[in-house]
């Protein structure tokens, strides 16, 4: 597989030789509940040496500071599907917000305090008869400012090629078997245009608070490869 990482070693729990300086410390468990990888004590690769060299040259030449790099990593680490879930839950509970989200998802997300950067973000709404799915066939474009970095499978050849050719078969691999009369719309992202699926609010959630609703919104439900959890 193109994105396989054979050096992944979950059994090597040793967090203490991270020599990173600055505000970012990657300790404990990740937001997805996995231990962080521990490449810091595996043999130095050619590409890791290139990363170190490029970073140091940029710093030496005054183009970027070490603090800026640490801050950017911290900002990216803080982005996770819970951001998107908060937007979805707001749309489920506030019809005026939902209308603004469907009109301009970048502006509506900024309204909630999320840094969307220069992204053009479009929210596509799942309804009783339509299901939306997002992909980037050309590379790996993803609503990273709202969901964090994309999962590896999103960047694989298999997902990129097949999501637009046989989306129903792909969805079945994710455990989602849609009725034949459901319309499936696949949205191909670009660097300048990212999509977010607004999943349909699950039945039986009338009494839930916005916060409780957000807990039902999974990452995959906002990509379209899944549905929200049921209460």
């Amino acid at each position: 597989m193109p994105h396989d990482h054979p050096d992944h070693d979950h059994d090597h729990h040793d967090h203490d030789h991270d020599h990173d300086h600055g505000p970012f410390h990657h300790e404990g468990m990740s937001p997805s509940g996995h231990p962080y990888r521990h490449d810091n004590d595996s043999p130095l690769t050619y590409w890791q040496r290139m990363e170190i060299a490029v970073r140091e040259l940029l710093i030496d030449k005054g183009r970027i500071t070490a603090a800026e790099i640490a801050n950017q990593i911290e900002a990216m680490d803080a982005r996770s599907p819970t951001n998107g879930a908060a937007v979805v839950a707001r749309a489920w509970t506030d019809p005026a917000f939902k209308a603004r989200l469907l009109h301009d998802a970048s502006a509506a997300s900024r309204e909630m305090g999320f840094d969307i950067g220069p992204l053009n973000l479009i929210a596509v709404e799942n309804t009783a008869d339509t299901h939306n799915l997002i992909v980037c066939t050309l590379c790996s474009c993803y609503p990273r400012n709202l969901l964090g970095l994309p999962p590896d499978w999103y960047k694989t050849r298999a997902y990129r090629t097949r999501a637009v050719r046989e989306p129903r078969a792909v969805l079945r691999e994710f455990g989602l078997d849609l009725p034949a009369n459901t319309t499936v719309r696949v949205h191909d992202s670009t660097a300048d245009m990212r999509y977010l699926v607004l999943p349909a609010r699950p039945a039986g959630t009338d009494t839930l608070t916005e916060r409780e609703l957000a807990a039902l919104v999974t990452r995959d439900s906002m990509i379209g490869t899944g549905l929200p959890l049921r209460p």
Binding site: H34, R37, I73
Partner: peptide, 14 residues
């Protein structure tokens, strides 16, 4: 679709 994912290493985040 290979249903794999990993959490990013520090050098990847950099």
């Amino acid at each position: 679709v290979p249903m794999e994912s990993h959490d990013f290493a520090l050098w990847e985040k950099r």
